[in-house]
Simulated assay, not measured.
Amino acid sequence: MSCESCKNELAREMYAELEKFIDELPEKRGALISVLHRAQSIFGYLPKEVQAFVGEKLNISTAQVYGVVSFYSFFTMEPKGKYPISVCLGTACYVRGADKVLEAFKNELGIDVGQTTSDGKFSLDALRCVGACGLAPVVLIGDKVYGRINSAEQVKEIIKEYQD
């Protein structure tokens, strides 16, 4: 089996999983956001092909789907790294040095906000607020929360945890 056929088989399985989720919804009307969340968890992001598929299955236009995807910052149309890093830049985090934490991640990874490392391991984003102000500055890697990050050394240690 060639690598291309591996990708095609994986894609078919992912689309089948999404289709099953949509088909099992008791009510499709008003389900767009939950379907998009599920699609993003399956595919890792929401490329135009997935958006078109969702629109077709929910009987809404691709433009409507795109409007929701582009409006909500949680959704992404670009592939993320295996370990998506998000630095909170909300007020509490910012006044406690989150901008310096973000710079440390940029320097350590060699990427800017919105980019993914060439090996696909890390992607970097900045968020407005994650609601963990008591732990400011806060960094999320996937669903794991790191609080009171205030040095380049801490950033290096965090990244080291994810080196395979």
Rank of each mutant, 00 (worst) to 15 (best):
E4H: 13
E4D: 11
K7T: 12
N8C: 10
A11L: 15
Y15D: 04
L18S: 01
K20D: 13
K20S: 14
D23T: 06
D23K: 14
L25T: 09
E27K: 14
I33Q: 12
H37S: 08
Q40S: 03
S41I: 11
F43T: 10
G44L: 04
G44S: 04
E49H: 12
V54T: 02
E56V: 13
K57H: 12
L58E: 06
N59I: 11
T62S: 08
V65F: 03
V65K: 07
Y66H: 03
F71I: 10
Y72S: 10
M77G: 14
P79G: 00
K82E: 09
I85F: 02
S86E: 07
V87R: 01
C88F: 05
L89D: 08
L89V: 06
A92N: 14
V101M: 02
A104Q: 03
F105P: 04
F105W: 03
K106M: 08
K106E: 08
E108Y: 01
V113N: 04
G114M: 06
Q115G: 10
T117A: 01
D119S: 11
F122E: 04
D125K: 13
R128M: 13
C129S: 05
G134R: 13
P137Q: 09
P137W: 11
V138L: 02
K144L: 03
Y146N: 02
I149K: 03
S151D: 01
E153F: 00
E153R: 00
Q154L: 00
Y162M: 08
